[in-house]
Nucleic acid binder design. Structure first.
Length: 420
RNA sequence: CGGAGUAUGGUGUAAUGGUAGCACGAGUCCUUUGGGAGGAUUUAGUCUCGGUUCGAAUCCGAGUACUCCGACCA
């Protein structure tokens, strides 16, 4: 992508509305646009990041053989009445009516719908266990949206649902999902720790939250300094000593980026999901659900990975992996050469499948290009300028490091590979 | 919903009852090019409704929006 063709612009100053770093930088960098509180558009740069995160998650699910589906955003209210959540879900549940007065619900989550499908699908033990996954919009009439993408009224969630024949199976599926989540968070650059928590509205008996320690976090988590055991404050309120190793427990702020619930039979009971054994006896299916908020994950990455100049995207989730800057020169011949060489590098990078943003803009000072590059936070910066060309080189710098390296142009492709 | 705060061009800010100004951005032109460069020129604003007043961005009332703290959540 050529930066001269990029649809969005950066802001020099921080909009006053933003107090969270991630919100400030997303707005300034032109990643997002606000329509109303908790309702945002992902602009091209933001959407690129979003898609990277989505694909990393999808890849892990694919590896685990978990099938993807897509359930509707509109639900008949009837389904929610069956589970009782039409009343118990509270004000966050967005209720609407069709033109004929038919009651509907906007998906706050998808237990009801997946349970409805499973009730018509599962018949015998041989069909179990299975896990299905989707990426779908969730709409919640939040009392207080906040922090830009940290808490939205509409967001996209990766939500997976597991079905097992018994509790033991549920535990296995649950463990499997915890493992998948750990891989996912590692890949998107979030040091998320699983924390034991209570089940809340979702019902069921057991749940784990995935928490990322961050000063700007709104949740408190009690964590052992020695062994790393972590628990929700609801569970480990006043514990000074670790229940596992006896080490010192400290309280830290954190952001909840995912939640995994053992739902048990709450939904299978309400929606009649059961399998028949050999004797023809019915057994309720054990369910689990597992969700990651994609926009929140994106904002959380920024909360923990930025500096005074801007965002520092991890290599795998940056909108592009390489930011190629062509620095201007008043000498026409030199500028022509700079342009020519960067254009060639740009084309070569694209051919080799490296996603690159190429700052080809004329009339922008070097300082401005550097400042924007730092703000947007693309992991690897490559500079072509009069100075580098004198040495037949380009300059390479990682966003997260200060040191710069000169690299002869002929060695550039192979050197770059070692960084990707 | 409980508490608090804010509301002026796209963004950031001034104007304490008397001419709405500045900077940045954006458009055009010239110069400049290793850390947000300079000049010329153009562009665009007082959240809404009502009240007080000769006169309101400014005072009063209501509404709305946004932000923050609480509760809940991904």
């Amino acid at each position: 992508m050529k930066q001269s063709e990029l649809f969005t612009k950066v802001l020099r100053e921080t909009p006053r509305e933003a107090t969270f770093v991630s919100h400030q930088l997303l707005l300034r960098g032109g990643f997002i646009y606000r329509f109303a509180s908790g309702m945002y558009a992902l602009l091209p740069l933001g959407f690129l990041v979003f898609k990277k995160i989505e694909n990393i998650i999808r890849e892990e699910f694919n590896k685990a053989g978990i099938q993807e589906l897509l359930m509707s955003l509109l639900h008949p209210a009837e389904l929610w009445k069956k589970t009782g959540r039409f009343e118990t879900a509270g004000k966050e549940l967005w209720k609407i009516k069709s033109r004929t007065g038919e009651e509907m619900v906007l998906a706050m989550t998808h237990e009801e719908t997946i349970a409805a499908i499973a009730a018509d699908t599962v018949r015998s033990e041989s069909e179990l266990p299975f896990i299905v996954n989707q990426f779908q919009t969730k709409v919640r009439d939040e009392e207080r949206p906040r922090g830009g993408l940290l808490r939205l009224r509409e967001f996209i969630m990766q939500d997976a649902y597991s079905f097992d024949k018994d509790e033991e199976g549920l535990s296995r599926s649950f463990q499997k999902m915890i493992g998948i989540y750990q891989k996912i968070f590692k890949n998107i650059g979030l040091p998320a720790i699983p924390v034991k928590a209570s089940a809340g509205l979702m019902g069921g008996e057991d749940s784990y939250e995935f928490m990322v320690l961050a000063d700007s976090g709104e949740d408190e988590v009690v964590i052992c300094r020695k062994c790393g055991f972590a628990a929700n404050t609801e569970i480990a309120k006043d514990k000074k000593e670790c229940p596992q190793c006896g080490g010192e427990m400290v309280i830290k702020n954190s952001i909840e980026v995912a939640h995994a619930f053992k739902l048990g039979t709450k939904y299978s009971k309400a929606m009649n999901i059961f399998w028949n054994d050999k004797k023809g006896e019915k057994h309720l299916v054990q369910m689990g659900c597992y969700g990651i908020g994609l926009e929140r994950a994106m904002a959380t990455i920024i909360e923990i990975s930025h500096d005074d100049h801007g965002i520092i995207w991890p290599l795998k989730v940056g909108p592009f992996r390489v930011h190629l800057l062509a620095l201007g020169s008043s000498k026409k011949a030199v500028w022509k050469k700079i342009k020519k060489i960067s254009e060639k590098l740009y084309q070569d990078l694209k051919k080799s499948g490296t996603d690159v943003l190429y700052d080809d803009r004329e009339g922008r000072s070097a300082g401005e290009k550097f400042a924007e590059a730092d703000l947007i936070g693309i992991p690897i910066r490559v500079v072509v300028s009069e100075r580098t060309l004198e040495k037949n080189s380009v300059e390479i710098k990682k966003r997260k490091e200060d040191k710069v390296k000169l690299c002869l142009i002929k060695f550039f492709p192979s050197y770059l590979k070692t960084l990707l």
